[in-house]
Amino acid sequence: MPAKKAASRKGAEKKRKPPANKTVMTPENELSAYKSMLLIRRFEEKAGQLYGMGLIGGFCHLYIGQEAVVTGMQMAASEGDQLLTSYRDHGHMLSAGMDPRAIMAELAGKKTGSSRGKGGSMHMFSPEKGFYGGHGIVGAQVPIGAGLAFANKYEGNGKVSVTYFGEGAANQGQVYETFNMAALWKLPVVFVIENNRYAMGTSVTRAAAGAEELYNRGQAYGIPGEPVNGMDVQDVRAAGMRAVEWCRAGKGPYILEMKTYRYRGHSMSDPAKYRTREEVQEMRKTSDPIEQSRDRLLGSGIAGEKELKEIDREIRQIVNEAAEFAQTSSEPDLTELYTDIYVAETLNAG
């Protein structure tokens, strides 16, 4: 019934226009968004520092610059909703409420880490907090996120799955197989494309046809999509609320394309020759999510310089404690090599 499909797409079109006034954040919202973003920023700076000291090994992808995306989305989601993402996952885990100490200890490969040292930076999970990883294969989390949504619909539990992936991942075929199934079966999943403009050294324009409108990539399946200023936590939260509401109402999936930016290299080993230093400095100067939030707090009188300094001190404290905890924890016991391969073995393990 092509006519009917066209009609529903038009409906989606209408929904896509964001209301002119942003969904207003309360002073508490503003303050908690600021704290969440600052925690991610400071945590990531510390992780970068520990990597340089050799305490963290392998791949380590920092989220600096993109803090508003997961922070705003988590504010829009409800307790019990799930989230999952790629290897660039530290911010998502902090936002989901996982213990910074367990995350940092995992980065350092210690037994107190959230995966007991076996997963590392790219592979952490917390079913308790609704966080389902931590995926190292580009694009793989997308159908898995739809699978969580499938289970939500199957159980009728009203939960929504928020599935994050990069603009580079958005070119993987499995993303479109997933869009089709999610739309066909009206699965409650919000697809969040974190368009930070680069996939390693490849800019979005060099890799994607229609690079300016990735939010439209669900159009053929009738999935509504919107571009969002991913550097502003207010905008993210407002768009997130529309998307989550749409999903929870049983209308199927929703796509949000977050226009964002990563300040640091792709991982720690990035020659950074594919963009200019000026481009990065410009983004930091004009669009920094934390600075914008800070200006609003100060401008509206929600907080003063003194309070913000105090917040900064508290957060540094949390992060330093996490680093201290990671450094002083011991490595996994050698017997751990053979545990957790199968479920039964976990039970039998000494």
């Binding site: 490969g109 040292g117 490595e331 996994p332 090599l337």
Partner: peptide, 16 residues
């Protein structure tokens, strides 16, 4: 290599 997925921790990786 040992019959396990590759662990991240330095000591376990060495053992694997």
């Amino acid at each position: 290599g040992k019959d396990v997925p590759m662990p991240y921790a330095a000591n376990l990786e060495k053992l694997a």
